[in-house]
Structure formats: C-alpha cells, structure tokens
C-alpha cells in the first residue's frame, strides 16, 4: 500500500492526559496516524504506551486533551461506541475467551454480521490459516502463537479501519514471532495499525512511523527507517545498542 505522508490523519491524539487512580500516567501525549501506515509506539516499560491504547479505545477516560477519528471527537465515547466506529483492540493479555471455541470468539467479536462477513472471514483465513484448522477447538487449548493470531484476527470480522495492537510478540518464541510478522505484513494491506511493541526487530519490520514515549509524553517522532539508523535515540529511549 502506498503511503501518503500529507494525507488527512485517520486518528489524531492531541495532548491527552490520563490518570489511573491518583497516578498521572499520560502527561501530554500527541500523535497522528495516517492511512496506509503502521505507527509504532515505542518506549521503556511504564512510559505510557499501553495506557495510550486503552485511552483511545475508551477503557480509560482522558482528563484533558482530544482524540479525533477522521476529525470526529471520540474521547467522550464509551468503549463499545468507539469500537463500532471501526477501531479494533488487541490487549497485551490477548483478551481471548478461553472457554469459548475459536468460532464463538469470532461470533462475539462480530457486531455487524451481514453478507460481507463470509468474505471477511475468507480474508482472515488467508492471513491466519491455523484458525480455520482449529475452528471448533476451545481457544484455551491453542498454543501461545495461535492465541495471539486469534486475538489479532478477531477484530477483522468487522472491517475495522484501525487496529490497536499491544505487544503482540510478548511471550512468543522467535520462530513464532517471524510467523506473526509475516501475517501482520499481509494485515497491513487491509487496515491501519497502531502497534505497541518492545521487540525492536518486530517493530522495525512492520513500522512506517514511530513515536517515542518517555514519562507519559511523546518525546520524539519520525519514520522508522530513520530510527533504525539512529543509535543515539535507540540507546537513550529504548536501551538498545549496536
């Protein structure tokens, strides 16, 4: 998909502040997500990346700032209303319904079953063929990689325009991460992605734009190719050298 750097942002996060209890976690996060791109949020543990995703989907309410989806404010909406506007969310713990089958997991995820659902499911099976094989299996019996694929695939049944994915590589073996990267490269063709990822190999393999987080703020932004070359930034904010 051809990236368009000057296109209208699909999502604009403007100076949001979020509290969890008394803790001021996000202290002015701003970034833009453009169509056709994977935007990666990077930073050390506790920098506010996951909180940002949870604020976008409505699980946390920002005390200040705005979140605009195609110029429409969504920061005051409930999670189910935001989801129905076309934003899918894959949490860090995957959020799989372990006692339900793979089929039932998709059934819960689908809120607009219609003629296109079957077509969308074919796309899902093309990207994640294992899910077809384990269609009737209990989700709790899948391997870690298969569970992650199910978690990422579920929101696709609603033709979401934007997918928020939190740490998809967490707890997976390197070979499984490679499979996941291949699948997500195909996924990029269908939906815009905001990816939170600690694994720099995965982040740099998939990302187009990046935002660096530190202490609840966005401190640096740019294109992923630049970050790959910039040893100083990587060392300062991600602890990566060489």
């Amino acid at each position: 998909m051809e990236a368009n750097p000057v296109s209208e942002p699909l999502l604009k996060v403007d100076e949001i502040h979020t509290f969890i209890g008394k803790h001021h976690i996000l202290q002015g996060v701003s970034f833009e997500v453009h169509p056709g791109k994977v935007t990666v949020l990077l930073g050390r543990n506790g920098a506010g990346k996951s909180t940002t995703l949870r604020t976008i989907i409505g699980l946390l309410s920002p005390s200040r700032g705005r979140i605009l989806l195609k110029n429409r404010p969504i920061h005051h909406l409930k999670p189910y209303e935001i989801s129905r506007l076309g934003i899918g969310f894959v949490p860090e713990d995957r959020g799989i319904f372990n006692f339900l089958t793979v089929e039932e997991n998709f059934r819960v995820a689908s809120f607009q079953e219609n003629g296109k659902t079957r077509e969308l499911m074919e796309t899902v099976f093309d990207i994640f063929p294992d899910l077809k094989k384990f269609w009737k299996a209990k989700a709790g019996n899948l391997s870690g990689g298969q569970k992650q694929m199910l978690a990422i695939a579920r929101p696709l049944v609603n033709r979401n325009e934007l997918l928020l994915i939190d740490e998809p590589s967490k707890g997976l073996a390197p070979i499984v991460i490679d499979h996941l990267i291949d699948a997500m490269k195909k996924l990029k063709e269908f939906t815009v992605i905001i990816l939170v990822e600690q694994n720099f190999y995965m982040a740099s393999s998939l990302g187009n734009d990046f935002y660096l987080f530190d202490d609840g703020k966005t401190v640096h932004q740019g294109q992923m190719d630049e970050l790959v070359q910039n040893e100083e930034l990587k060392k300062k904010y991600l602890g990566i050298s060489g």
Partner: peptide, 13 residues
C-alpha cells in the same frame, strides 16, 4: 470470562 473485552468488541455491556 472477560466483560472488558466484550465491551471493546462493540457490545453495550
């Protein structure tokens, strides 16, 4: 099992 995920899947919990 997980009411939060049901919400973010577009259902008014």
């Amino acid at each position: 099992e997980n009411p939060e995920m049901v919400q973010v899947m577009g259902h008014n919990i």
